[in-house]
Design a protein around this nucleic acid. Sequence first.
DNA 1: GAAATAGTGTCTCTTAGACACTATTTC
DNA 2: GAAATAGTGTCTAAGAGACACTATTTC
Lengths: 230, 230
Amino acid sequence: MRDRSSSSARGAKQTAVSLDIVLCTPRGRSLTVLLVRGAEGGREKWTLPWAWFTPGTSPDDRAVHVIADALGAKPGWLAQVGATGDERRHPGGAALSIGYAAVTAARDRGPAADAQWFPVGSLPPLAPRHATLIATAQLALRERLDTAPIAFRLLPATFTLTELQDVYELLLGRRVHKASFRRSLQAAWLVEPTDEWRSEGRGRPAQLFRYAPRKRRGGRRGVRFELLGG
Amino acid sequence: MRDRSSSSARGAKQTAVSLDIVLCTPRGRSLTVLLVRGAEGGREKWTLPWAWFTPGTSPDDRAVHVIADALGAKPGWLAQVGATGDERRHPGGAALSIGYAAVTAARDRGPAADAQWFPVGSLPPLAPRHATLIATAQLALRERLDTAPIAFRLLPATFTLTELQDVYELLLGRRVHKASFRRSLQAAWLVEPTDEWRSEGRGRPAQLFRYAPRKRRGGRRGVRFELLGG
DNA sequence: GAAATAGTGTCTCTTAGACACTATTTC
DNA sequence: GAAATAGTGTCTAAGAGACACTATTTC
């Protein structure tokens, strides 16, 4: 019988494949990315969390494990954002790198001893492939913000609507209209109020909400022709 | 100096990586996918066009070449749709497969001798990993239909607005309102009329248009909370 | 009381979708 | 003429955004 195991697939050029992860969480007014100390002798002091792909394990499962190692908890959400195999250097010399965007509420658990959160606006020097991936992941989060529960996974289980709006503004990179935001949220049946209120020093206390999607609103209306300049 | 070439990256598990392509074009009332004859002794008679990834070449560039081999022309548009490395079988036994969605106007050139177009609704038996990839690629085309010029690359250089609408309906899987479709199209400044008209037997002849994007409409308004049931 | 933040009512403008129509062709 | 297809004008309903307001807290 013909051997079908991957390690002996006929004619295959064997490749070193890395899984590289952009794990984000909000911190104050900026989005932060988790970095870990680079390997001894590596060119950079910091790198994104990454690991070699090992045949036999699903890359997505492996990516979750890489995050668990660096963060001490599983991510709230994770998605692939593309495979890169061009000349841009990977810190481990991978010929092919599969990029992931992931989010966490951070309060889940503190990061491992050799890991640290950096604001996306002030990152240390990174290998070119990692620098590119962070930009790609940012874009992916923005694009999927309204089709995946990304904003909710960036927040703890209960949150105020102002906190939720802040997350949207952080990821979208623009201001959002408050009344309109809340009307849309209500129409989508995505959150429900709790009995709790939180007072943040000055001002009226805010009611806490939780993510509780009630129905699928199938119909994205119409046909949108946007950004089609390519 | 430390060796950084991919083939000797320290600790790397070497992997056989395939590039697998779902190339689509409209044919009558259905979308069709290009398949090629499977390798001798392979389990399936037909497979998606695919090739091994070779370190040193960008996977996207390599994917374009694979298409050129099977189709005789470069695709009108192409994008990655995800890397799969689970237990689903790949026809060549690849441990990891990078999937691509691509489109062509087909009239570009006929396919190679061992390649053939199949309607997505009536495909021959395919390896599980390829069957899954086709569904994933379909979804990716639908999702990016309004942010990438996919519909225009599925049509020849000039086309009628009814043809364009048919492509949208084919990819979206639902009917689109004619007057509304044309208003949106006009508002987006994406097409311009030519001096030509085409008569298709009965009925009033239709004016031919060409894809000619004039401006970028930056503002996707508001915040949409849709499909966030996850 | 002022300052700050949370939350809401109302208006306008844009636009998706429905409906009905006109226009131009083949038969 | 009828049938078929292309293309448009008008109305309605939904929703985004502006504006202005009320509500509840700390100081």
